[in-house]
């Protein structure tokens, strides 16, 4: 089942990047997608029934809007720190506890954190995520969690879990 889903995704991707519907192109894409699905199918997501729940797509669209807004804010924030003559930076690596459990949800959360204001994910060990922050605002661990991951965690929980 997982192999078929991955095969379809790979074939659609191939047809989009080559953008021609001749027979030869479809055959080449099918062979390449078959090899890819056989090699990497065991790493694909486990519970496929989640793809069929429309509520998750609804939350995904809302999350995408919030995410794009945060990315734009991140860029203006970093641009301000670059241009400012005195460079107002106070960097450090902080430890933030995670609430989401599944692998793909953690991956998406780590990618989202990397693209938001002044934070880059360094590593995940156990249930903690380590984040390099360009301006450490306070010393209290609860405030880190709200600043770094609180914006996304509730949406990602609704989308992937």
């Amino acid at each position: 089942m997982r192999f078929i889903a991955l095969f379809i995704i790979l074939l659609v991707f191939w047809l989009l990047i080559t953008f021609s519907l001749t027979l030869a192109n479809i055959v080449v894409g099918a062979v390449a997608a078959l090899i890819g699905a056989l090699l990497f199918g065991k790493y694909f997501v486990h519970n496929l029934y989640k793809f069929g729940q429309p509520k998750r797509y609804y939350w995904f669209v809302i999350y995408l809007g919030i995410f794009i807004w945060e990315v734009l804010k991140a860029n203006f924030d970093v641009a301000y720190r670059v241009i400012h003559p005195a460079m107002p930076i106070k960097p450090g690596i902080v430890r933030v506890p995670l609430e989401v459990k599944s692998e793909i949800a953690r991956t998406m959360l780590a990618n989202s954190i990397t693209m938001t204001p002044g934070t880059i994910t360094v590593d995940i060990i156990g249930d903690d995520i380590f984040v390099h922050w360009i301006y450490v605002k306070s010393d209290k661990p609860e405030e880190y969690a709200r600043e770094v991951s609180g914006r996304f965690e509730k949406y990602i929980k609704k989308i992937f879990e």
């Binding site: 970093v78 460079m87 930076i89 880059i120």
Partner: peptide
Amino acid sequence: LGCLGLIRFPDVYNRLQSATK
């Protein structure tokens, strides 16, 4: 601006912050 940050910031981690985003 990203490339300017690559020149100005003091260590690897901050350079990566500015450059990647």
